[in-house]
Amino acid sequence: MFSPHGPTIRELTVQALSSVERGYDLLAPKFDHTPFRTPDAVLDAVQGELKGMGPFAHGLDLCCGTGAGTEVLRTVCRESVTGVDFSAGMLAVARARVRSDGPPHVAWVRGDARALPFGPVFDLAVSFGAFGHFLPRELPGLFTEVHSVMRPGGRFVFPVGAPPSPESPWYWALLGFDAAMRVRNALWRPPFVMYYRTFRFGDVRRELTRAGFTVEHRALTAFGHRPDGSPCCRLIVATRT
């Protein structure tokens, strides 16, 4: 799960007992050596789909972390790519690892996804692996913010994995993680919001529609299908109409 270059158990414990922002500042130098980083297979699959939709002019990587999604945007956006994150530590790593010679021009902005400091300038926005940091009650506000920074016809695109079945060890692992996180947040301040089982496909589609998006989804066939025939991973494509 972790490489020799990743964080130690002690470092992860200190991170988990910090706020989300401070925790990621601490984890940033070793984040790319943890299983929390979005796998290259997911990034490659999304990039392939985006190339079929584009090209685009201006792209936004929402909650960009160390810039893995920003690198995807660089391949499909012609003019500019902006990465936004509220962790200064993650942005520092992103600046160091992502090529900034353009086009497209690459910019980094420290900001909160729930209060984006932009006008309606983007025709593509992506996000990878960040939605567990938002409570379900925050989704309406989050999606409304994204809608407000998109041009008419702009697309908000992100992958969503199908929840594992109770027969899978991953089901119990994620259930245990979320339960432990709830206990931690009940006993310790500041809270560290990170839940794996709260970002549900039906809720996401409903709240995107309420925010003003037209929503479609596509199967990412590289990840196969479940026994009932549904895809193991979907790509959500929400368009500002």
Results as ranks from 00 to 15, higher is better:
V98G: 12
V160G: 04
H147L: 13
S148M: 01
L142M: 05
E167G: 11
G161A: 14
P163K: 00
G132D: 04
S148D: 11
V157S: 09
F156A: 10
A125M: 04
S100I: 10
V93P: 11
S165M: 06
L116P: 00
A92M: 07
R97L: 11
F156R: 13
D85V: 14
V121G: 08
H105M: 10
L91W: 06
F122W: 07
P152G: 01
R137F: 13
A92H: 10
A130R: 03
D123R: 04
V160Q: 06
A107I: 02
R95G: 08
W170F: 12
R137Q: 11
L91Y: 13
H105D: 07
H105N: 07
A125I: 02
D112H: 09
P169D: 03
D112W: 14
F158D: 01
P169I: 06
G132K: 12
G119D: 09
G119E: 04
V126S: 00
R110S: 09
A107M: 07
V109Y: 02
A96M: 09
F128C: 02
F143H: 10
P120Y: 02
S168M: 12
G153D: 07
H147G: 06
A96T: 12
G161L: 08
G102E: 10
A125C: 13
F122C: 13
V149K: 15
A130N: 08
S148I: 02
W170K: 08
W108F: 14
P117W: 09
F128D: 02
D112P: 06
H105V: 12
S165L: 07
V98N: 03
P136W: 14
R95E: 12
